[in-house]
Design a protein around this nucleic acid. Structure first.
Lengths: 70, 70
DNA sequence: TTGTGACTTGTAGTCCGTG
DNA sequence: GCACGGACTACAAGTCACA
């Protein structure tokens, strides 16, 4: 399931930035509990919200997905 | 807006496969009119539906986004 | 063959908490 | 700092008639 792989990828990148879920969610203007469920792979996120996250991780879509484990 | 860039990218790839919107939508099990609106960049598509489309285009997420114009 | 407006239903997404 | 839940509201999913 793609949403789970995305969650894993987001988590590893957020941690590498040294930010908590809460701080990161705040930074990108997203609800803390919703962001947590995305990271847990439980949400079928929309592309606009995924863009918010990827921007917050300071990556391009291409880089985000090219580094994703399959 | 990311959804518009995605629509453009999908359209160019679908055409390169030589398929109509209808045939492609049928192939991936998606409603034709819904697919048309995604191609037109009018829908904030979810990651699971985008996955269906990208699979139908026979590409990886990475390749899909690496070829996207910005 | 494709574009679009209108509509209903399911779930994305928000906000309040808890251990 | 994180996982989880309840109760909401907003919006994506999915379908149709018609151009």
């Amino acid at each position: 399931m793609i949403q789970q792989k995305i969650g894993v990828r987001i988590k590893e990148l957020r941690i590498s930035l040294g930010l908590s879920q809460e701080k990161f969610a705040l930074k990108i203007g997203m609800d803390r509990t919703y962001f947590a469920s995305v990271e847990a792979g439980k949400r079928n996120i929309s592309i606009n919200n995924l863009e918010k996250i990827i921007n917050g991780l300071e990556l391009s879509f291409s880089d985000f997905f090219s580094g994703m484990e399959d």
